[in-house]
Design a protein around this nucleic acid. Structure first.
Lengths: 213, 213
DNA sequence: TAGTTAATGGAACGCTTGTTCGAATTAAGT
DNA sequence: ACTTAATTCGAACAAGCGTTCCATTAACTA
């Protein structure tokens, strides 16, 4: 792709900054002033060039209808993941009813970039209570983002409810013969071997986040 | 806070959807058409009400200058944190030269919501190499977001370079008498006691993120 | 040197859009 | 029933704003 000129780069940066600050795009005359361009027609000229190069999109005849594309540095999309409850060793995790979406109105939520979610839908988050997940390298207060799931692929990190032990745990999921091997993320810790009908997969772990207070 | 009326809720939803679709806010007449309102003045009237209620902000006399606030469902702000290198036990962490900002043009970056950064500036991120940070409950491949710092407050989790041992470690920082106590996040692990002139603080850990492949 | 294309300036035109005003309608309170 | 406030309407005004046209300058090519 052909590179934008110095002036076009400047305009692109200005649009980026303007949107970041105002949450709405600049007008042509805003750009004119902000980039020391002498005429609106020059701005229009360069915007057309940038549009042709694929850095932005415009709705003609509509004021401020400038939309930056990915190449132009579009703001990444995020999604609000509701924090639906806690996860602790002694109780199954609360999996939200997907029918209730999209208006669960939970008290708290966390924003995750699409980069993290990988486009997955229906995610929910749990706040870790206690240090029982320490072998998954997950601490008290951490937040785990989960995807509802009943089954898992080899190696997925999942939240499983162990029926016999009556506890939930976060482990990497593996088949091993006619048993299930649940491997802690901390590879120095020993795995758990158990029968398939003792494990109930409650969700896949999408990512874990540890905010420092 | 007083609740918006049915019509105002409808307008709010319309604005949200419009921005989500177009990446720029609607004009008053867009809202008029989209919400089946008979007059632009009614839209203006209700926008004023919504503004007074704190659901949005407007720049007067500027077209499409509608900005949704948090209450109104504003898209959260994010910042791109450059991944400037790796963190491993055997080498000091690469702290970026803050003078180079804001155009380091690193190959990779991670988007963090302002909710995480707490408004902090100049952050950088490191990819963890190896399992040497396991006592900080941080695994191989995790990403730690850091804030440049030469000093730390009690309890902060910091990246410290231990001169004598010639290694970097992530610990909670505490003063204890004339010594420094470096406490692992995993409270079952023993702390390190060392002399103040043996520790060189390289940055504060803002948060840790573990994407699942 | 002449000719072509890219880039810039300046100005004016006309649609877009926020604003305002008076009046009508409805809701709420006394 | 009367008053007052809250909403809605329709219309018109004025500033905002994208567009267009023409002239000018610079860079490149034949």
């Amino acid at each position: 792709m052909k590179e934008p000129t110095t002036r076009q780069k400047k305009i692109l940066d200005y649009i980026r900054d303007f949107i970041s600050e105002h949450d709405y795009p600049p007008s042509i005359r805003d750009i004119q002033l902000g980039c020391n361009v002498s005429s609106t027609s020059v701005v229009d000229y360069n915007l057309r060039a940038l549009e042709r190069l694929g850095y932005l999109r415009r709705d003609r005849e509509v004021s401020r209808a400038i939309e930056l594309t990915a190449a132009g540095g579009k703001r990444p999309r995020t999604m609000a993941v509701p924090i639906v409850g806690q996860i602790a060793a002694g109780q199954p995790i609360p999996v939200p009813d997907t029918d209730e979406f999209p208006n669960p109105d939970y008290s708290d939520a966390i924003e995750i970039t699409e980069e993290m979610t990988g486009g997955r839908e229906g995610l929910f988050a749990l706040r870790v209570k206690g240090v029982s997940m320490i072998d998954a390298l997950i601490n008290d207060g951490d937040i785990v983002v989960m995807e509802p799931a009943k089954t898992a692929d080899e190696g997925d990190m999942v939240a499983v409810w162990l029926k016999e032990e009556e506890e939930v745990t976060l482990k990497h999921f593996h088949h091993e013969g006619d048993k299930i091997r649940l491997q802690p993320a901390n590879s120095t810790m020993p795995p758990i071997y158990t029968a398939p009908d003792n494990v109930e997969i409650q969700g896949k772990v999408v990512c874990a986040i540890r905010p420092m207070r």
